[in-house]
Amino acid sequence: MRLEPKPAPSMAVTLLYPAMAILATFVIAAILVMIAGAAPLQVFGLVIKGAVGSQFALVETLTRATPLIFTGLAIAVAFRAKLWNIGAEAQLYAGAVMTIILGTGAIAAPAGILIPIIIVGAMTAGALLLLGPAILKTRFGVDEVVTTLLLNFIFLLFVSLLLEGPLKDPMGLGWPQSERVVAEARLPRIIQGKRLHYGFILAIFSAIAVWLIMAKSVLGYEMRAVGHNPEAARFAGIPVNRVLVKTALLSGGLAALAGVSEVAGLKGNLTLDISPGYGYTGIVVAMLALLNPLGVVISAIFVAGIFVGADAMSRSAGVPSYISDVMVATALLSMVTAIMLTRFRIRWR
């Protein structure tokens, strides 16, 4: 078996293959559901119902999608310039820590001032966290996959240190958790009494802003050029290293917004489990969206829907909710395969 390049795919092929990828995902998931001893169609029905079948479900899905949009955007931006940022998880926590530092009473200001200060502070923290790996890469050629990945564990331990020490809530009964942010630092709810908050609106605006940057701005052009062919970019006079550093700052800042949104929008305080791997899931979200910033919104909602729906399904059908992880992973593999098949044909001999 071998791969031969194909001529440019037609529009129909470009749309057909992702559709087939989604179909393949469901077929593979169906087999697993049957092994678990349930009826696939019933289970899928329950997943969809649990994801979007009621106002409660829909709100829950969008709430879960919010941090994924931020981390998905962070990855989409970085991967476009072929800066392999695997450290969105740490950058998320950097944003969360900064939200606690600025938002628990250190600054007394009305919400209209305090929230922007928190956003800027958190983005700076996330950006600085990725600056180190970016400089190591551009100066010394250190592989950023290794540095950003390992920084996740280092930073999580650092957060643990903070929560046992300076940021520990004195009223927290000894739990490793921070104080709650003040009311002025809270992102308001979109609908009273529901969990969905203005972080979701901020995420949508961020996606539009990132799309504008990528498609229309000089920086976006430079990032794409550096990502596609750094040697040609350098020859044309594009400052490759400087572009990579700017990309890192933007990516780290976006990931940090996920931390702001989770702490100031949802949880109110910082614990070590505010992110069940949003930084890593962001990679899947960005890849499913083919690194398109607006596509990230859709794929984040899709991935969040599967997670939320699977939770609901497992309660009533008795199939473990791990099926959601399998489905998301299968969707990613199918999508990657579909993209490959639009570019290459397989020859058997």
């Binding site: 794409r224 050029a225 596609h228 040609a232 970019a233 006079g237």
Partner: peptide
């Protein structure tokens, strides 16, 4: 440049994006 594929042009970008690369 000697190698038009690797250095001269960015193959995955459009004609427009390539011709402005030296003076964008």
């Amino acid at each position: 440049p000697e190698d038009r594929h690797a250095v001269g042009m960015i193959g995955d970008m459009s004609v427009t994006e390539n011709v402005v690369s030296e003076r964008y």
